[in-house]
């Protein structure tokens, strides 16, 4: 990833170009990684099968999901003007997780393969509607955070209940594993289900760039600059719901990407919330693709889930954040 210095002076176009190159490189790296190597041993049909059925969905999903997480994290941090905001804050990933867990609990995932992603999508949709209804049409950032927290808590409670009531140990293990998040063994069909929704969500999020820039001056000044705050909030919530909801429905919960990536890229984007949106989309895609590559490197020795790896990277980042904030606040 691009090195980060104290006071960088990077032109926006160069920043986005560099991140774009990094994303493409990580994508190609992801495509060429796997037990079958670069496809040297496999030939003909087997080789094309490995590429189109296994590696391509995995790499494309990695790029899309990482991009969705980075982009929505940047959008939420910009809208809430809080560097600690991340996509799970608005309750959508909790809803998606609950939907998928219910699909497992009710045995639907045994009956048909797509029950998991469909359950996840339904859960995300219900969670989004609940958050929007709870937060009201004209509430500020605080009501949105509270509504997201309330919906997340309800989802977490119901997930615990499902785990608690689960009679079947295999189902319990499946639920727990699903919640750890994974890009492995996702089919082209799952990609086709989630990709359009992720892209719609991303498009919505990219429309708020100017509004987020203006919000740097506070809500009154932003409105006086012609920003429609209600529309901005709806675009942020719906964009996050579509992109992160669809991503979580297919891959399970992958934390910290949406928190860390905007943080790392903010100085390079000159702290401009609008520019940080596309930068974080590319940065998130790169980070998740590289994390997935790292998983496959250590796979012969330890079977790690990607959500576990991002949490392992993300939690120490939080510690660093605390130490830095403490240093800044020190007299």
């Amino acid at each position: 990833m691009t090195p980060i210095s104290g006071r960088p002076d990077v032109k926006p176009i160069y920043l986005l170009a560099a991140l774009g190159v990094a994303t493409v490189a990580a994508f190609i790296l992801s495509l060429s990684m796997g037990p079958a190597g670069l496809g040297i041993e496999a030939t003909g049909e087997a080789r094309s099968l490995i590429f189109t059925e296994i590696r391509l969905p995995r790499a494309v999903l990695g790029a899309l999901v990482g991009g969705a997480l980075g982009l929505s994290g940047a959008a939420l941090q910009g809208y809430l003007r809080n560097p600690l905001a991340e996509p799970s804050l608005v309750g959508v990933s909790g809803g998606a997780a609950l939907g998928a867990v219910l699909a497992i609990h009710l045995g639907l995932s045994q009956a048909f393969a797509l029950a998991l992603p469909v359950g996840g999508l339904a859960g995300a949709a219900v969670a989004m509607l609940a958050v929007v209804a709870l937060a009201g049409a004209h509430g500020g950032p605080v009501t949105l955070i509270l509504a997201g927290l309330a919906v997340s808590s309800i989802a977490a409670a119901l997930i615990s209940l499902a785990l608690n009531l689960s009679q079947n140990p295999f189902a319990s293990v499946e639920m727990v594993f699903w919640m750890m998040g994974s890009l492995a063994d996702r089919s082209l069909t799952q990609l086709w289900i989630s990709a359009p929704l992720i892209l719609i969500g991303a498009a919505l999020l990219l429309t708020v760039a100017r509004a987020l820039d203006a919000l740097t001056l506070g809500e009154d000044a932003a409105r006086s600059l012609g920003v429609d705050l209600a529309r901005t909030r709806l675009a942020v919530v719906a964009g996050t719901a579509f992109s992160v909801g669809a991503a979580t429905a297919v891959t399970g919960i992958i934390g910290f990407v949406g928190l860390i990536v905007p943080h790392m890229l903010r100085p390079l984007a000159h702290h401009r919330p609008g520019l940080l949106l596309p930068a974080s989309a590319l940065g998130g895609a790169t980070m998740l693709l590289l994390a997935d590559v790292a998983l496959r490197i250590v796979q012969p020795w330890v079977e790690l889930r990607i959500g576990v790896l991002t949490a392992l990277i993300g939690a120490p980042f939080f510690v660093w954040l605390v130490l830095r904030t403490r240093a800044e606040l020190a007299p």
Binding site: R81, T216, L217, G218, A221, L225, H270, H271, R272, P273
Partner: peptide, 28 residues
């Protein structure tokens, strides 16, 4: 917004933008 500018009493700036970047927001 192209005709009427409003300068609030609160001197809010949320991110560590440069002075020039803040002034540029007036052009939005």
């Amino acid at each position: 917004a192209r005709s009427l500018a409003y300068l609030p009493q609160e001197r809010t700036t949320h991110w560590a933008l440069s002075a020039r970047a803040v002034v540029a927001l007036g052009r939005l």
